[in-house]
Amino acid sequence: QVALSRTQVCGILREELFQGDAFHQSDTHIFIIMGASGDLAKKKIYPTIWWLFRDGLLPENTFIVGYARSRLTVADIRKQSEPFFKATPEEKLKLEDFFARNSYVAGQYDDAASYQRLNSHMNALHLGSQANRLFYLALPPTVYEAVTKNIHESCMSQIGWNRIIVEKPFGRDLQSSDRLSNHISSLFREDQIYRIDHYLGKEMVQNLMVLRFANRIFGPIWNRDNIACVILTFKEPFGTEGRGGYFDEFGIIRDVMQNHLLQMLCLVAMEKPASTNSDDVRDEKVKVLKCISEVQANNVVLGQYVGNPDGEGEATKGYLDDPTVPRGSTTATFAAVVLYVENERWDGVPFILRCGKALNERKAEVRLQFHDVAGDIFHQQCKRNELVIRVQPNEAVYTKMMTKKPGMFFNPEESELDLTYGNRYKNVKLPDAYERLILDVFCGSQMHFVRSDELREAWRIFTPLLHQIELEKPKPIPYIYGSRGPTEADELMKRVGFQYEGTYKWVNPHKL
């Protein structure tokens, strides 16, 4: 086992960053958080920038500027975001240094004079007029057009580079997404736009490419001749908990499936790229999406959770019991969808996408189930092999396979070949997804960000279904809070070829 401390991990990262040409360590950078008073800024962006600063992973002359409508001070920003920093008493001095680099400007999102004030403020910072500028839009999409237009007109660096990070949702359907994309691309070049999907920053999602293309053993079996089906799962054990009003506007397909799960599907299904260059990788992902037809209604199961009468606390409440959810809402909190990649490698292999709230566990994984062994000599005792990439929690890679049961006879039983990170790298604290992705933006690497043509294809696949749901308002199937979801989803999976045995229990190697 390799035991690495946080300091050692960050030392390795620093070495990698400083050796590259793309990370300008000594240049002045300004990180501007648009929507600095909001939840995302408070819980994710400010803490992430602090962790990067604490670990010495930001360029040395980096300033952080918050911008929002609320009249706040840096002290206010500190008060609301610091509880999420997880700072230790030993880091007190470092924390003071961090907040000394912070400033805040209040202004409207659609007022040109406010942006001119913001620009004057940035120019007044040390070497601010020639600094590289990175704008993070932690804002609702309704203000994107006004904000990007004003940034472009008043706040661009004339000497350094300018980059803009856009948070999902990128529209509600193909038409609104196209409108937003066309607007942003009329102001910024594609190499300046970073559409963030934080799932692409997760260690195991990034590991998929290495697993596939750096190991000879997987190449020959990664196709329709050997793989019976692919299941991509995202499960949350909690409901909307008072935030249903926002969720109800989008629903589970827009929230998770059309982005996170579809991105994971691309990494499983794509061909080997010409290189690890950002556009070479994204070219292959677009090719996969172009091979997927629009979702067919007979390959869809929609569910909505109801309270568990035997549960406790939140578990007793259904989705419609959330006071922020519109009365009688038919918005799905669970969806199972089957897609097919219609190309030579994957023809006929079902890709089953499942996601839901208020389920029995927290889990995100990719599961490849292989065909049955031909010419069975073990009297149907063999179960199908599976390769599982567990994204969260407890990152893991393992192969479910058959071995001989101890004893006199040739009785096979299920076991696993474990390729888990935790076994080799004991207690290594890896940077989280937002840390990686923000560092990628500083480096100018777009590999783990969504390109406009990729986004367009993703919406093309799901828009007809979303429009049909909005028009017909089908009643989702009720499922109990804390269950596996509607049984109809299991029946759909069985119908397209997935075999669920229920006889195997994964042993978490992190707890051995």
Results as ranks from 00 to 15, higher is better:
Glu472Cys: 13
Asp283Gln: 03
Asn298Tyr: 11
Glu361Thr: 09
Gly485Ile: 00
Arg456Glu: 08
Tyr504Lys: 06
His371Pro: 03
Phe442Lys: 05
Leu320Cys: 09
Leu439Asp: 02
Arg282Val: 02
Pro273Glu: 02
Ala489Val: 10
Phe498Tyr: 15
Glu386Ala: 07
Met402Glu: 10
Gln304Ala: 07
Asp372Pro: 13
Gly311Ile: 10
Phe370Gln: 00
Glu491Cys: 11
Arg484Phe: 03
Tyr500His: 15
Pro464Trp: 08
Ser278Trp: 07
Gly348Arg: 11
Asp310Gln: 11
Cys266Ala: 10
Tyr305Ile: 00
Pro476Asp: 00
Asn360Glu: 09
Trp459Gln: 01
Asn298Met: 10
Pro326Trp: 07
Lys363Gly: 05
Glu386Gln: 05
Leu267Tyr: 01
Leu261Gly: 06
Thr503Phe: 09
Glu457Gln: 13
Gln446Val: 07
Gln392Asn: 14
Asn423Glu: 14
Tyr479His: 00
Ser452Cys: 09
Thr276Phe: 03
Ala315Pro: 13
Pro273Cys: 04
Gly407Pro: 03
Val388Ile: 12
Thr463Met: 02
Leu417Asn: 01
Ser483Ala: 12
Val337Met: 09
Ala364Ile: 11
Lys405Asn: 14
Tyr398Gly: 00
Gly502Cys: 12
Asn411Cys: 10
Phe410Asn: 08
Ala458Tyr: 02
Leu466Ala: 06
Phe351Tyr: 03
Met447Asp: 04
Val391Gln: 04
Gly328Leu: 10
Tyr425Ser: 06
Val441Pro: 08
His467Thr: 14
Ala332Lys: 00
Glu314Cys: 12
Gln392Cys: 06
Val349Cys: 06
Gly311Pro: 09
Pro478Val: 09
Trp346Phe: 08
Leu359His: 07
Ile480Glu: 13
Gly485Val: 00
Pro309Ser: 12
Asn277Cys: 11
Cys443Trp: 14
Glu342Lys: 10
Ile477Ser: 14
Thr333Lys: 05
Val373Asp: 08
Leu289Thr: 06
Ala364Lys: 05
Ser275Asp: 07
Val338Glu: 13
Lys404Leu: 05
Arg362Thr: 11
Asp255Leu: 04
Val391Asn: 04
Tyr319Gln: 03
Met493Arg: 07
Arg451His: 04
Leu387Val: 06
Leu465Thr: 10
Gln263Trp: 01
His260Ile: 02
Arg390Asp: 03
Ala269His: 03
Val288Leu: 11
Asn308Arg: 15
Pro309Tyr: 12
Thr330Trp: 10
Met402Ser: 10
Lys494Asp: 13
Val281His: 03
Leu430Lys: 12
Lys505Val: 15
Asp255Tyr: 04
Ser293Leu: 07
Pro273Thr: 01
Gly313Cys: 12
Phe370Asn: 02
Met402Phe: 12
Ala433Gln: 00
Ser278Arg: 07
Asn298Phe: 10
Lys272Leu: 07
Ser415Asn: 05
Thr276Val: 13
Glu491Asp: 13
Glu271Trp: 00
Ala332Pro: 12
Gly444Phe: 01
Asp280Glu: 08
Phe370Pro: 02
Asn259Ala: 02
Ala332Met: 07
Arg254Glu: 00
Gly356Asp: 01
Lys473Tyr: 10
Thr420Glu: 14
Gln392Thr: 10
His448Pro: 08
Met493Pro: 06
